[in-house]
Design a protein around this nucleic acid. Structure first.
Lengths: 133, 133
DNA sequence: CGGCATCCCGAGAGATACTG
DNA sequence: CAGTATCTCTCGGGATGCCG
């Protein structure tokens, strides 16, 4: 994310894999999925729409700045919608779009993988760290 | 990754989602998947084992440092194996473990998602950027 | 060939303060 | 309440140089 508020993905170092795979578009998705806050937000919105403040309090440790930046980015990509209800005090609700739902389902698949293999990974680490003591 | 060479995921700011979801283990996976180089390496190893130098030349733009760090990290997590053949000159081959293969399959699923929806995301961005001119 | 050690820089995360 | 603006500082990661 750039300083000026726009969320244009900056200078990918022009990565290119041998077999001419379409890695570029994959990177966009991976940047999304790899983003700490995006995933947490999408995970919460998977259970239904939430207000800004609900998100802020549900996600322990996120700053206002990062929450806003994350939501703007998700909105820009058409993954979440932002609905303003101009009451007083104002109310803003966020929800996943249909496409956003499909991505969050992919993330769920990844969560399942994580749960299935977390023991294995943990053991591997212990074993590895013990060996190279 | 820490300075001293260990790859212990440092100070996660103690993220915790409302409903006591097991986000912690998910983060490990997402850090893996979100990592630019890890994914590229696993993608290449998905086609069979590779030598260090093959990986380095196949992945345009990766530095020695990053390739080594990435491989060590993947090895530590039990996702790739490192096989040294002490010939002269020495030869080192890397390959996915069975569990590594299952993760790379998840990544493939994500790639499919990316291809299916990349047009949508691109359009959303254009539309959004046009609107908020 | 296949690394590790060192120096260095800039993007990006957090904290804080202000606004419609 | 729901943001924007600014300032600071960490640390990911590139470049370079040396070892087994």
């Amino acid at each position: 994310m750039t300083e000026d508020g726009t969320l244009t993905r900056p200078p990918h170092t022009g990565v290119r894999v041998s077999g001419e795979h379409p890695m570029c578009e994959l990177r966009d998705v991976l940047d999304r999925v790899g983003d700490k806050w995006s995933v947490l937000v999408m995970s919460l919105l998977g259970d239904g729409s939430r207000r800004y403040s609900e998100l802020q309090h549900s996600i322990e440790g996120i700053s206002q700045r990062m929450l806003t930046l994350t939501l703007r980015s998700l909105e820009r990509d058409g993954l979440v919608t932002r609905t303003v209800t101009p009451t007083s005090p104002p109310r803003v609700d966020y929800a996943l779009t249909p496409v956003g739902v499909t991505l969050s389902e992919q993330v769920s698949a990844l969560m399942r993988w994580a749960e299935e293999h977390r023991g294995y990974v943990a053991e591997s680490r212990v074993r590895h760290d013990a060996g190279s003591s």
